[in-house]
Write a protein that binds this DNA or RNA. Structure first.
Lengths: 201, 201, 201, 201
DNA sequence: TATGAATGAGTATTCATTCAT
DNA sequence: AATGAATGAATACTCATTCAT
């Protein structure tokens, strides 16, 4: 009854729901959503199915939780950089680099996000799409701002530029390896540089 | 029981196998590999399970056939454009644009390709990865050639540039709609232009 | 945390147990015993599972409580009418009509009773059967009394007549609707009349 | 390829679908629909689950098959007796007795029918209710015919009389035992006699 | 008197694949 | 070349019940 209870003698102490979510995230990223059974998740988390269904309504819910975390995180960070007091080139560069860094730092979650979006039921799908659109539009607004003020080339649709950059972010899960030659920040700087060069008038 | 029936002995059996492959491609793209049952495929193709298993060893084989077609197609076209007699900027622009057009024209196949790669068994996975690498390296060689000759900026790793571009190609399946405002060729021209601008020294 | 709370020590705990029983009765009647989960019951009653298991040993116990109430009620009323000081035709008519009225007035309970009897474990089943038999025999005795004294036809086994009448009582749950054209008393009068006419010598 | 193939050496020869239906009927009657698992059915029938689902779309389908058989049988027989060329008293007596005999002869099926009707999904429920109503109305028409022509008492609603008689039919599953003192025909004659006496003006 | 997290055995259903014909 | 009945293992999910607090 004293708040945090830890270090007690029984097996694995830790909030069960959290452990389940972390385990599910890892397995979904490794094997994909459909190839991961609920049984595998609970076995790996050291609990029973009943416990999982006590905290999560369904396997889908687990997926949606992962999405929610990623979406919230990325939206917050984009808002932060886009609202900054700096020239638009700087704000776009910072936002473009940051989404790369945070994507790599949460590579499991984002892999799941991009790969499994189409597994959501219709209502949750709608919700996720709406949040994604909001994110996309915020990013596009930065590009349009630069195009209007003449610092970015205006002859390519801003929508397409957003998808160009997010394609590379989406793609990170396919090739980025922790033990590769580039740090997350280096990858981010390179990709942001490519974007800004592509937008030079 | 007579009907049309070609008596030639060569490999490619005509209508049934082809119909099965086309149907499977469509369904895999629409619903994903795991969410598509063999029963659905044979029902949609108007044949029975026995027929499918007569032509294909397993459901996995069907997937692998789709991969093979896409890989062969894209490699051929890349080789064609890379081997042309033209300045490297032109050859890169043509190759970069062409992969966009052929990806859109075979959007179902490429959707499957990117989404379901991780479903392959280890041997087939190795094989596909090797072919992918060969493709990647051919494309990278173009960029390195331009970097060496000074027509492309050399301060960003060529590998990363390849992934930058292929990210956007990979991403097409997520956002491109046939009834959208841009034709495949227009999208291709824009994306190739973005790539070349990003490489301006 | 004060509120209303009776401090008497006798058996019947007041509001929670009663609310649980009433809720369970309604749900069992609407959906059947097997289709009603303990969770549904406690949710509908606004308490938690712990509370239910505090008052009732098991889900079966709840069912048995419903049975007990119906059995006790009907036995009491039958005894009342059968023991009255009146001609046997009058006593039989009153008893036959009364069981119809009280069945309709407790239609949920009786629906459960007839539909779910086979869900009881062996001991409770024995107990319920014994009480049912006692009821049946009391009713049969009335008929036999009339047959012996010549006011009822004697060429049909009294057992069968009892089941004939109770069949129609049993059946009420299937067709009787509160908003139908007949009041409970009208239905009762008609059915008692049919019984007595059938017994006319 | 010669029609009936029987007597061959392997284990239990017999149409699998038929064997499954018979087994399910028995188990549903003994234990109730909800208390009978698909596993029990296939074990008792000596096949695997896959075989069951090859022939029946769902557990519900199995139930519906049982219903269908009973409904068709009873409707046919009622039509036969009601259409006969005889006084209405005779036709009603024959129909009333016959439904008793066929109910007893198919007691498992009819037990299931009356006990498990509320387990059907909404569409099938509608269908079954419609067929039941048709049956009820045919029977009621006989009574009304007699009431109009003065051979039956007209002071009790015909609907109620139908339910009175069918209550006793419904009830047979509760009390009738094969080894009891009365043959099906004897029970039927007694119950038909009771009905006709109740209707004497 | 009551909570609610956790269990573990159970549920109906799906599915890729095989094989005798 | 093709059928379709049958398998057997796996799947997501449910539920009555227990127990430390």
């Amino acid at each position: 009854m004293a708040g945090t209870k830890d270090g007690n003698g029984n097996g694995a102490a830790k909030p069960v729901a959290q452990r389940l979510l972390a385990t599910a995230t890892r397995l979904f990223a490794e094997q994909g959503y459909d190839r991961t059974s609920v049984q595998e998740i609970v076995d790996a988390a050291g609990v029973t199915k009943g416990a999982l269904y006590h905290y999560f309504g369904s396997k889908d819910d687990l997926l949606h939780e992962v999405y929610g975390r990623v979406l919230r995180l990325q939206q917050e960070r984009l808002d932060h950089f886009a609202d900054a007091d700096a020239p638009v080139q700087q704000r776009l560069r910072d936002a473009a680099a940051d989404v790369v860094v945070t994507t790599i730092e949460n590579l499991d979650d984002t892999k799941i996000f991009f790969r499994s979006m189409h597994h959501l039921g219709p209502e949750k799908d709608k919700q996720v799409r709406a949040e994604r659109r909001r994110y996309h539009e915020r990013f596009r607004a930065l590009i349009e701002e630069g195009q209007r003020s003449g610092v970015f080339a205006a002859d390519i649709p801003a929508d397409l530029v957003v998808d160009y950059h997010f394609g590379s972010v989406h793609h990170l899960g396919t090739w980025y390896r922790e033990d590769g030659p580039l740090s997350p920040q280096q990858v981010a700087d390179h990709l942001a540089e490519l974007l800004l060069r592509a937008l030079r008038p």
